[in-house]
Amino acid sequence: MIEARGLSKRFGDVLAVDDLTFDVQPGRVTGFLGPNGSGKSTTMAMIMGLDHATSGSVKILGKQYHELRWPLREVGALLEARAIHPGRSARSHLWSLAQYNSIPKTRVDEVLDRVGLIDVANKRVGKFSLGMGQRLGIAAALLGDPAVVLLDEPVNGLDPEGIRWTRTLCKSLAAEGRTVFLSSHLMAEMALTADQLVVIGKGRLIAEMPVAEFVAHSTGNSYRVRVSSPEALMTVLEGANGEVVLSADGSLLVSGLDAKTIGDLALSLGVAVYELTAQASLEDAFMEMTGSSVEYRGVS
């Protein structure tokens, strides 16, 4: 498990990570969510002891990273895509990491097989595609059969099949009782993969809650309703204290009522319901939460 307490990191004038306190528990996938540049990678680097915290602390399995006796057997990490010498073969790269922690050579081919790179084991890593590089990074993370797995933006550059594979892998690692902490700036992917969320923006903690709660928070506020006679339903819905807007295409945008109430009222009125969909998406909720904390915003 991972415990961050008041973790902060300053680069010159920029406070990249600002007083982060959160816990990552074993047995479930914890998503680390935030826009690009929000401090996710810096936090990961501090967990790994690569960057030094300006103040506060972070412990992994109850220890500081450099106190781990066999780091690779306790923590497996996929850092930013290419933390690998391009001139080495995939097999040599993994073998050298394995040797650092007395991990048997047979394990190298086991993980290469698991991530689907066994056929290119002797190919130089520099020739790998972005997706293959990510898989090799995941193989390195799995080498030591670790209790904690850290994955920094693991689905970057992966094709849909690879994304699905990573999602399944994360879930199965968590189901085996491991602590799985993965960062992403993609809300939709997180909603599918994670059980728990740590959301940050501009280095600050915005939310720490189960995904289900996050989803509940962010949907059900507004519904799009298409029925056989919109005007009639509109009157009834407004009578039930709903706020209703009639769109140009004839559909209704309803807020202030839940889906069940809307459906029941339509039934009692005898109108046919063609569509009843929640409007606020997870993306919207995420944007809403982190909106004021996005550092670089494009103009649209």
């Binding site: 790994m48 002891g49 690569l50 990273y65 450099h66 781990l68 780091p71 690779l72 923590v75 990490a77 850092l79 930013e80 290419r82 933390a83 690998i84 010498h85 790269h93 990491l97 650092y100 922690n101 390195a140």
Partner: peptide
């Protein structure tokens, strides 16, 4: 960037 892999297995 290999150094980051190295230091993660031997901090």
């Amino acid at each position: 960037g290999q150094i980051r892999s190295t230091l993660s297995v031997m901090p």
